[in-house]
Simulated assay, not measured.
Amino acid sequence: MKPENVVVLGSINVDIGARVNALPRAGETVAGGELSVRLGGKGANQAVAAARAGATVAMRGAVGTESFGLDPVAALEGYGVDMTGVATLAGASGAALITVDAQGENTIVVSPGANGRMAAAGPSCAGALLLAQLELPPELVRDAFRAHKAAGARTVLNAAPAVDPPEDLFALTDILIVNETELARYAGAEPADPADEDEIERAARGLRRPGQTLIVTLGARGALALAEAGRLRVPARPAEARDTTGAGDCFCGALAARLAEGAPLDVALEFAAAAAAISVTRDGAASGMPDRAEIDGALAG
Rank of each mutant, 00 (worst) to 15 (best):
A50H: 06
G40F: 05
L39M: 05
M59L: 02
V178T: 09
A189C: 14
V178C: 08
E135T: 09
L35T: 15
D101Q: 03
D266S: 09
A18N: 13
A273K: 04
A49P: 10
L23S: 12
R142V: 09
R292G: 08
L169Y: 05
R282G: 08
N13E: 01
G122P: 03
C250P: 08
E4P: 15
A247L: 05
A257N: 02
G288D: 00
A273P: 04
P112E: 09
G41N: 07
F271C: 00
A275W: 01
V234W: 07
L176Y: 05
G253W: 00
L140F: 06
P166W: 06
T244Q: 14
T244S: 14
L39T: 02
A254I: 00
C250V: 05
E228T: 12
R233H: 14
V20L: 07
E66P: 06
A257R: 01
E240V: 12
Q133P: 02
A227G: 15
C252L: 08
A151Y: 01
G230M: 02
G104Y: 10
A96E: 09
G222V: 02
A90S: 15
V109F: 11
L89I: 01
E228M: 00
A268T: 02
L140D: 10
E105T: 10
V81D: 09
V37M: 13
P3T: 14
E139R: 14
Y79M: 05
R292H: 11
S67C: 12
